[in-house]
Amino acid sequence: MTDQPPTPEQFRQLVNDIEAEVGRVIVGQQALIRQTLITLLAGGNALLEGVPGLGKTMLVRTLSQTIDCSFSRIQFTPDLMPSDIVGTNLIVEDESGRRQFQFEAGPIFANLILADEINRATPKTQSAMLEAMQEHSVTVAKATRSLPEPFFVLATQNPLEMEGTYPLPEAQLDRFFFKIDVPFPAIAELVEIADRTTAAGSPSAGQITQGQTILEMQKLARAVPIAPHVTEFAAQLLTATHPGQPSTPQIVQDYVRYGASPRGLQAMVLAGKIFALIDGRFNVAYDDIRNASLPAMRHRLILNFDAQAEGITADQIITHLGEQISVKA
């Protein structure tokens, strides 16, 4: 690829190629791959929630291979310290015997980071990680160091083993562009997984593009025009998640404690633009917003006790809102 920004057609083709290449390694999980790729192209970070062994690490590793980017995996544990992530200054002795501090970069200095089971680390470590996610830079000993671009963090958390974990606070969850649910594979997919991973040769993904192209694609995605009424629809959808307002649907009044933040609107609009480009369009449609609303807002809604007691999920509420909010012509 050259430094020229890709055309919309090239954008679409690249996305399809990357998905296909990743699909050679990851069986099924098309929605997971698509949403992960959209998060990467939006310049955000994704939080994956799913049981262990569903291919999350494999997904990030394969993705890094297809875009020719560096990859790091950080296994979060309670004793993990921030310096273990961002790096630290070490005293080294040079050839002349003189001692000086030398920064030893941590695993975060990579393009694609897999923060595995992020909820097992202490809040202090989580904060260091999330600061890097937000600022794309780390500060060690008063020295701020930029992280390589593209910078993409894919954090995971296990929804089952909650003992001894430090659930991410809502303010920190809000920093994730998407929260992507990793469903358990179907039987056919499991069979395929078994076949692929137990054969003599394991499939591997080839390079499709490079990191610089990803950055250009991010710029292109942001340039997609969106009509004011479509943006307004996204805003209505977001506003509808806030209880206590006259126009709020009853389901929100009943089950939601706090609605989504404006970051949710940003995520919906930006993801909608990428959905449009992938769909071969040059404008954002209502459906793009609806498609983006689930991963963009599900971790931004704070449900009340009634919802937890009755088994109402954020996905149900967001889906209901997407159907209920009318598109006025």
Partner: peptide, 10 residues
């Protein structure tokens, strides 16, 4: 997919 309305808006 909001093609016409977007074009008109711009």
């Amino acid at each position: 997919k909001e093609r016409l309305s977007t074009a008109l808006a711009f």
